[in-house]
Simulated scan of single mutants.
Amino acid sequence: MAEITAALVKDLREKSGAGMMDCKKALTENNGDLDAAIDWLRTKGLSKAAKKADRVAAEGLVAMAVTDNGAGETASAVEVNAETDFVSRNELFQNAARAIAKASLGVDGVDAINAAKVESGETVQELLTNLIANIGENMMVRRSAKFSVPAGVVASYVHNATAPDLGRIGVLVAVESTADKAKLRELGRKIAMHVAATAPLSLSSDDLDPAAVERERAVLTEKAREEGRPEAMIAKIVEGQINKFQKEVVLLKQPFVMNPDQTVEQLVADTGKELGAPIKITGFVRLALGEGVEKKTEDFAAEVAAVTGG
């Protein structure tokens, strides 16, 4: 039986990130073989991950990454979820989120991100599995978005930043132009801050989800009837309200938050004239942490009453 020294346990802990007692047990089970002990811990980590997979992971971080392509740029935003807000302040988790965002620059979609390799050589899924074993919470890459422009910038903005490029709301805005990149980034960041504040549904009217328009039309039509508007006038009234609705939810039609007398579309056009080159916003995304995830609510008073019979 090989001697399990404190130095060997420390070495395994540094390599695996697992707890001290787990490392000691792994070495004991594998007769002091460091590589075998690492595999044993990873197997144990997989078991832990499976047990935690049904827990709701609605906290975590939105991480951003950007790479320069010469005249243009590629940028990515990734939502990496955990179970508690506490984990988002954990340096290991923050570093993992940054690594995942960087790895996502070269692929598309969550499955491809999970299979992509981070700089350490392990896949994103392996990185998360080891982190789950170390921290003890369910974690996952929930969704991602990526934009590329052949010329121009993809500006990013993180609202309520926990650390650089990490926070609860992440916004990307693709700004295509041959104008000065520093000036374009300034414009893009302003628009990204606008997007964070207003949460538009689409870039242009043509991009607006027809189902969202019809849903709004149905609500407005029913409201007009309840208000006793003449049936012959309802269609015209609703059409005017739909136009107003589009100005509220379509990015380019929205009044710019920093200057409500100017729409975002006018801001872009005016900046293009000022810089001497046309500017086009080709896309945007706003990822809000936990958006759409149904969180489990605990009724502790009811649980206590059930146990005590009170």
Rank of each mutant, 00 (worst) to 15 (best):
L41D: 04
L8C: 00
N138W: 11
K25E: 14
A101Q: 10
D22L: 06
A96V: 06
G167K: 07
P200L: 13
K10M: 05
E83N: 02
R286G: 03
G136Q: 06
G106S: 14
S120E: 13
I234W: 08
E3A: 14
D206I: 10
L201Y: 13
A2S: 15
A161Y: 02
V56W: 09
G72W: 06
P255G: 03
L267A: 08
V304K: 13
A163N: 07
V268P: 00
P164E: 14
A75R: 09
F93Q: 08
P200R: 12
P278C: 02
S202F: 08
V107P: 08
T28S: 15
K15F: 03
S202C: 08
Q262M: 15
G121I: 02
A50V: 13
K223H: 12
D207M: 08
D68A: 12
G45Y: 05
K51L: 11
A37H: 05
S148C: 00
V285Q: 12
A196M: 06
G72H: 09
A18K: 05
A96K: 01
H159C: 00
A116D: 10
K181L: 06
A97L: 02
K244E: 14
T129P: 05
V80T: 12
A192M: 10
G60C: 04
V250L: 07
P230C: 04
V110C: 07
Q94V: 12
G292S: 10
L208N: 04
V238I: 07
K183C: 02
E214F: 02
K52E: 03
N160H: 06
D39N: 08
G292W: 11
V141D: 11
T178C: 00
G45E: 07
K273R: 12
A115Q: 14
Q262C: 11
I237D: 03
E176F: 10
V250K: 04
L187I: 10
E91C: 01
A50Q: 15
F147D: 06
L131K: 04
G283P: 09
S88E: 11
A151S: 15
V62T: 12
E119M: 00
F93S: 09
K190E: 15
P164Y: 02
M139C: 11
N114I: 05
A36G: 04
V213C: 09
V173G: 03
T5C: 06
D165L: 13
V87M: 04
A182E: 15
L61W: 03
A75G: 15
E303M: 13
Q266A: 15
G109F: 05
A36E: 14
Q262H: 02
L251W: 08
V293S: 05
F147G: 05
A196C: 05
G309L: 13
W40Y: 15
A224I: 08
D270W: 01
